[in-house]
Design a binder for these strands. Structure first.
Lengths: 105, 105
DNA sequence: ACAAACCTGTTTGTGATACAAACCTAAAAT
DNA sequence: ATTTTAGGTTTGTATCACAAACAGGTTTGT
C-alpha cells in the first residue's frame, strides 16, 4: 500500500496549498460569505496580497466575488462555490494522507 | 483559543511546505541516508528538480550531501541533519493544527 | 468650500521559485 | 574510436508572492 505512491503527494492542489489561500479557503468554507475587511483582519494578510489571492481563487472558480456599495462605501463580498468546496474537501483528504505518510505509514 | 490565530497558519515553513521537498523530507526523515537514484525513483521527480530541491534543502541546513564514487560511478548521498529533523517535526505539528482549523476547530 | 485624512481596495515592481530541457563528465558498450 | 549509458547539474522561462505605490470615492476639519 506504500511503495511508489509517496510521489502522489506532489500532486496536491497548489491553488489551495499556498498558505495565504489556505487560510482564506478555510474561512470561506465555514462562513459562506465574507467581505474583504473581515477576511483582511481574520487572515492577517496585507490588502494587496489578499486582493491578488482572492483574484486567483476566483480565476480558479473556487470563489465568487460580488462588489456592491454598502452605506456609500465599496464592499467586496466573497463566497465559496461548490467547485471550491469540493476542492477544499479533496485537499483536506490529501493532507490527511500526507500526514499518515509523514508519521511513517 | 481560536480567534485571530488562523493567520498563524501562513507562517508554515516554506522550505518543507513545497510538495517536492515534503516528499524528499518525508523519505529522509525515516531513512537516515539515501542516494540520488533512490530518491529519484521514490519521489517521482525529474533529475533536474530533484537536484535543485536537494540543493535548497542543503542550503537551508536541513540535509547534508556527500558525493563519492561507488563502483567507479558518482554517487550522491543525502541525509537529514538534526536541524532538518527538528524542522520536519515542527512542520508536522503545524500541519496538524491546520487540519484542526480546516475541520472547524 | 476647500483640503487633508480616511476607507476600500487594485495595480505595479521586484525578487524568489519551480519546472523542464539542455548540458556536462566519465565509464561501458559496440 | 565512436556511441550510448549513467549520474547528475546548469540554464532558461514562466509563474508567483509580497510589499509599496496608486486610485476612486467619502468623511472630517476649519
Amino acid at each position: 500500500m506504500n511503495d511508489e505512491n509517496l510521489h502522489d503527494l506532489t500532486e496536491v492542489d497548489r491553488i489551495i496549498h499556498e498558505p495565504a489561500r489556505l487560510v482564506i479557503s478555510t474561512i470561506l468554507y465555514t462562513v459562506k460569505e465574507a467581505d474583504f475587511l473581515f477576511l483582511l483582519h481574520e487572515s492577517g494578510l496585507t490588502k494587496g496580497n489578499l486582493s491578488s489571492h482572492l483574484s486567483k481563487l476566483e480565476e480558479a472558480g473556487y470563489i465568487t466575488i460580488q462588489k456592491r456599495f454598502n452605506d456609500k462605501k465599496p464592499q467586496t463580498l466573497c463566497s465559496m462555490t461548490p467547485l471550491g468546496r469540493q476542492a477544499f474537501e479533496e485537499y483536506r483528504a490529501h493532507i490527511k494522507k500526507i500526514m499518515q505518510k509523514m508519521n511513517g505509514e
